[in-house]
Simulated scan of single mutants.
Amino acid sequence: MFIVEETIAGADAVQIPKQRGESLLDTAVRYAEERHWDVVPGTWTEVVDGVYACSCGDAACSAPGAHPAEPGWADLATGSASAARRMWQKQPAASILLPTGRAFDAISVPETAGLLALARIERMGLTPGPVTLTPYRRTEFFVLPGAAAKLPDLLRTLGWTASSLDLAVLGEGGYVAAPPTRVGRHGAVQWARRPTRENRWLPDAEELVPSLAYACGRDR
């Protein structure tokens, strides 16, 4: 259940739900069943003699326990709850990866800018889609697919370029790690805004980019 909340100072005291009580298997099945998101198991975090390591075996892994486990991962992604259950029954510790460019794209910005933008968006009366917080201090906003193609023109209209802001879009061929995936010793991915009935209909990128660009510009 996504029920325990803590308050992060700043950004108008945005509430950050923590996850507890659900296995990765149950959560992956629920994403497929309730949100109709494609899911695919990735690598997982192992602890050997008190040291966190990625199941891929690379001691220098940049995303330990939170990246695709094999080259053909995109073809294995499924929106079937029963298929997802079978996948995680084989490897219950596997991370939950959500391919982007299918049900949604994800706009990634620094955590501070993301929380500032989130507060601004909600003050404007807009409903953001689900938003994650990663252990690498990034916020990822779920929006309708196609955001990657729209972003350059949207930013140009606002007087920015993508290269001038720490703002990126994960679209076709990409993925995000979903809560409660753990990223090595860094911690777990969390929901800043969890999936609910109210945000089932995702916003278009053009609804959020002005606030995200403004916040990124302030955070430079």
Rank of each mutant, 00 (worst) to 15 (best):
residue 1 M to T: 14
residue 4 V to A: 12
residue 6 E to I: 15
residue 7 T to E: 14
residue 8 I to Y: 06
residue 12 D to F: 06
residue 14 V to H: 02
residue 16 I to C: 04
residue 21 G to F: 14
residue 23 S to E: 07
residue 27 T to S: 12
residue 32 A to Q: 00
residue 32 A to K: 00
residue 34 E to W: 07
residue 35 R to L: 13
residue 40 V to D: 00
residue 40 V to L: 03
residue 40 V to M: 02
residue 45 T to Q: 03
residue 47 V to E: 13
residue 52 Y to V: 09
residue 52 Y to K: 05
residue 53 A to M: 14
residue 54 C to W: 06
residue 54 C to A: 10
residue 54 C to T: 07
residue 54 C to E: 04
residue 55 S to E: 11
residue 55 S to N: 11
residue 55 S to K: 06
residue 56 C to E: 07
residue 60 A to Q: 11
residue 60 A to R: 13
residue 63 A to H: 07
residue 63 A to E: 07
residue 64 P to D: 09
residue 66 A to L: 09
residue 67 H to F: 12
residue 67 H to N: 12
residue 67 H to D: 10
residue 68 P to T: 06
residue 70 E to C: 08
residue 72 G to L: 10
residue 72 G to M: 09
residue 74 A to G: 05
residue 74 A to T: 11
residue 75 D to A: 15
residue 76 L to C: 08
residue 77 A to P: 03
residue 78 T to F: 02
residue 78 T to R: 00
residue 80 S to I: 03
residue 81 A to N: 07
residue 82 S to A: 15
residue 87 M to P: 01
residue 89 Q to G: 11
residue 91 Q to T: 13
residue 91 Q to A: 15
residue 91 Q to V: 08
residue 91 Q to H: 11
residue 92 P to L: 03
residue 92 P to Q: 11
residue 94 A to P: 02
residue 95 S to H: 08
residue 95 S to E: 07
residue 98 L to M: 12
residue 98 L to P: 00
residue 100 T to I: 12
residue 103 A to K: 06
residue 106 A to F: 09
residue 108 S to Q: 15
residue 117 A to G: 11
residue 118 L to S: 03
residue 119 A to F: 05
residue 120 R to F: 08
residue 121 I to D: 02
residue 121 I to R: 02
residue 124 M to E: 15
residue 125 G to P: 07
residue 125 G to N: 10
residue 127 T to R: 13
residue 128 P to M: 10
residue 129 G to W: 02
residue 129 G to N: 05
residue 130 P to T: 10
residue 130 P to D: 06
residue 130 P to C: 10
residue 133 L to W: 03
residue 133 L to G: 04
residue 134 T to D: 05
residue 136 Y to Q: 11
residue 139 T to V: 09
residue 140 E to G: 05
residue 142 F to K: 09
residue 143 V to E: 03
residue 143 V to S: 05
residue 146 G to A: 10
residue 147 A to V: 09
residue 149 A to L: 12
residue 152 P to D: 12
residue 153 D to I: 04
residue 154 L to Y: 02
residue 156 R to Q: 15
residue 156 R to T: 14
residue 157 T to R: 15
residue 157 T to N: 14
residue 159 G to A: 11
residue 161 T to P: 03
residue 162 A to H: 02
residue 164 S to K: 12
residue 164 S to N: 13
residue 164 S to D: 14
residue 165 L to F: 10
residue 167 L to Y: 03
residue 167 L to C: 06
residue 171 G to N: 09
residue 171 G to K: 04
residue 174 G to W: 10
residue 174 G to M: 12
residue 175 Y to N: 01
residue 175 Y to P: 01
residue 177 A to N: 13
residue 180 P to D: 07
residue 182 R to Q: 14
residue 182 R to K: 13
residue 183 V to G: 00
residue 185 R to M: 07
residue 185 R to H: 15
residue 188 A to H: 15
residue 192 A to F: 02
residue 196 T to I: 08
residue 200 R to D: 10
residue 201 W to E: 13
residue 202 L to S: 04
residue 207 E to A: 14
residue 209 V to N: 00
residue 210 P to L: 08
residue 210 P to G: 07
residue 215 A to C: 13
residue 217 G to Q: 11
residue 217 G to Y: 08
residue 219 D to H: 11
